[in-house]
Amino acid sequence: MIKTEIYEEALFQTIKRGATEISDDVKEAFEKAIERETDVEAKKGLKATLESMELSAKRENPLCVDTGWPIFYFKVGNNCKLEGGFVELENAARRAVARATEKGYLRATMKHPLTGYDPGNNIGMNIPDFTYQFVDGDFIEISYAAKGGGSECFGGTRHRIVAFADGIKGIEKFVIESFVASARAGAVCPPSVLGIGIGGTANVAANLAKEAACLRTVGSKHPDPMFAKIEEDLYKALNSLGIGILGSGGATSVLAVNVEYAYTHIAGIACATSTNCMVARRASSRIDADGTVSKMKSPNWFGDR
């Protein structure tokens, strides 16, 4: 039985880490982007961003002022036993979000959608958001992702049903057109981690896109060569556009393009995009049955990618 105080503290530390520390894979992608950048001003911008992100870890302050929608992913062993059960896990996650907000690791960004009421702690109807994946074992893996307002609100996240008649060309055209529109003047905070969901109902495609944007290791490839080719082709195509950091010109417009898929209906192919901003915030922790908490380098949501 994993005690409440253990998983509540692990949740809090995971939020804090996600908000204040850049992941190793994102850092590596930044370093590569700096190396290949040819535009002098864009290079300075990338360097300044990386420098600021490294200072955030030392100063324990947020990587970006917009600390985003608080989103949790739980990969749960079938025999995992939590004190108070999963209802208490979600209560503990809410308490941890409120505590992280009070400490200034998160901004009080979540508001009532109609009245604009600000509860001041990022807790409200259906927020934070929880997603579960069940596997063999008795552990739980916690991933916290912060989905930024810019990346979500300016058209970087959308869907279209593509006809089988249009196939891969239709999917790729939809993605390129969407990304160009959404990255104008830096709206989605490029260079982006672009997630693409193909197949399923529209919400399945949208969830896959979001998970591909927030939980895939930057630099990983889809194991199926057909999907890996789409990732590679779109990565090259989008980085040939000259959108650059914050849309003001430069050689790096995306840090990664990650595709995930589901089988779909004979009637059409739901295709969704989810764009994560350049800071691509997330952190993951694992709690074993004996209560041992360990930091994870990567969310492990899609296995080894």
Binding site: E41, A42, K44, G45, L46, K47, A48, T49, E51, S52, L55, S56, R59, N61, P62, L63, C64, V65, A185, G186, C189, I245, L246, S248, C277, M278, V279
Partner: peptide, 12 residues
Amino acid sequence: VSPRSVSPNLWI
């Protein structure tokens, strides 16, 4: 005017 970086720590 707009920034060309996301660098809160170089501004605060």
